[in-house]
Design a protein around this nucleic acid. Structure first.
Length: 333
DNA sequence: CGCTTTTGACCAGCGC
DNA sequence: GCGCTGGTCAAAAGCG
């Protein structure tokens, strides 16, 4: 354990070093060219498990009581294929009523990936739903033993589209593939990604009853960029309470798991149709032309309780690291 | 010993 | 129907 932590620290040092010297892609608007000082934050500034999780930026974002959502809208651009985008556009022109309890199927709210092929990501399973489906699928018992053995491996019900859990993706610039977000994950698969030299890893939350999954892959264009896609909502509170998010987390928009330093968006779909998503680190590959108008509020200001907002009115470190354009004084609405 | 990772096989969905 | 691809399973191996 200690050894792994040391390794992690080393990785982080490497990461910090790398990030401190990193340059921004030309695709990133100048307004996003955060000063390098954001990378120069000493490791000590972060809690132990934040080291390596590259979550310092989240804490700093937490200091923005009301920043300009448009500056983060790249995060809201869903990862969609062209037909999906067209459908979204049509839906926007002729919006369909969407029950708050039912997130739209194309709920994969992902920033446009650096990899064109990533847009083909389309399927995921609703585990909770599948459990019931699987049980129902157990009716097919009139098969020979061999066939049965094979079926037992994958007793999924046919003729029923798998439901998708809401998904969130974000990109981080990190040397570490699997960022520590405070939850415990078990890797259950790895697949080669088409047109990418980097594999995609599949993780599942190890907590019983919590079917949250996440995929981790590296951008084929920029190997330093890690694309993490979360699927589902944790059914429990993050076991690790990081420094800097205490209080804020519990006040923040009712998130149950915001105590995670990584602030994995655990949106309350039942209450809000549009999920929140934040950069855990740097907004990369900002592409404001690829915004999805269907999620106009997808990236919203992060509204904290009054106390924390007041406390953080002084943007503190943010003043130094976040350009003034990105900060936006709260509006009276 | 218990937990995690690895890895090949399998399945579902989709396009042609 | 077939092939491709993403996603998942589960046995084996690895690790502390």
């Amino acid at each position: 354990m200690i050894e792994s932590m040391d390794r992690k620290d080393q990785e982080l040092k490497t990461e910090n070093s790398l990030m401190a010297n990193s340059t921004f892609s030309d695709e990133i608007p100048s307004s996003f060219a955060l000063p390098a000082s954001i990378f120069d934050m000493p490791c000590d500034h972060l809690g132990d498990h934040q080291k390596g999780s590259s979550s310092g930026f989240m804490d700093m974002l937490a200091g923005i009581s009301d920043y300009d959502p448009s500056l983060f809208e790249w995060f809201s651009a869903p990862m969609m294929s062209q037909p999906q985008q067209q459908q979204q556009q049509q839906e926007q022109q002729h919006p369909l009523p969407s029950p708050a309890s039912t997130f739209p199927e194309s709920s994969e709210v992902v920033n446009t990936p650096a990899t064109p092929n990533s847009s083909s990501i389309s399927s995921s399973s609703n585990e909770a739903a599948n459990e019931g489906q699987n049980k129902a699928g157990g009716e097919e018992e009139d098969q020979d033993d061999q066939d049965k053995n094979k079926k037992q491996l994958k007793p999924k019900k046919k003729n029923q589209k798998r439901q998708r859990e809401p998904r969130f993706a974000f990109m981080t610039k990190s040397e570490v593939d699997h960022l520590d977000d405070g939850y415990r994950w078990r890797k259950y698969g790895q697949k080669a990604v088409k047109n990418s030299p980097y594999p995609r890893s599949y993780y599942r939350c190890t907590t019983a009853g919590c079917g949250v999954k996440k995929r981790v892959e590296r951008s084929c264009d920029d190997s330093t960029i890690v694309v993490t896609t979360y699927e589902g909502q944790h059914t429990y509170t993050c076991p690790v309470t990081p420094r800097g998010s205490i209080g804020i987390a519990t006040e923040a928009a009712g998130y149950s798991s915001l105590s995670s330093p990584f602030v994995v968006p655990q949106p309350q779909y039942q209450q809000q149709q549009h999920p929140y998503i934040y950069s855990s680190q740097l907004p990369l590959n900002v592409n404001t032309t690829n915004l999805n108008p269907s999620f106009p509020h997808f990236v919203q200001e992060r509204r904290f309780g009054t106390s924390s907002a007041t406390l953080l009115r002084d943007h503190g470190l943010l003043q130094d690291i976040v350009p003034s354009q990105m900060r936006k004084e709260p509006k009276e609405e």
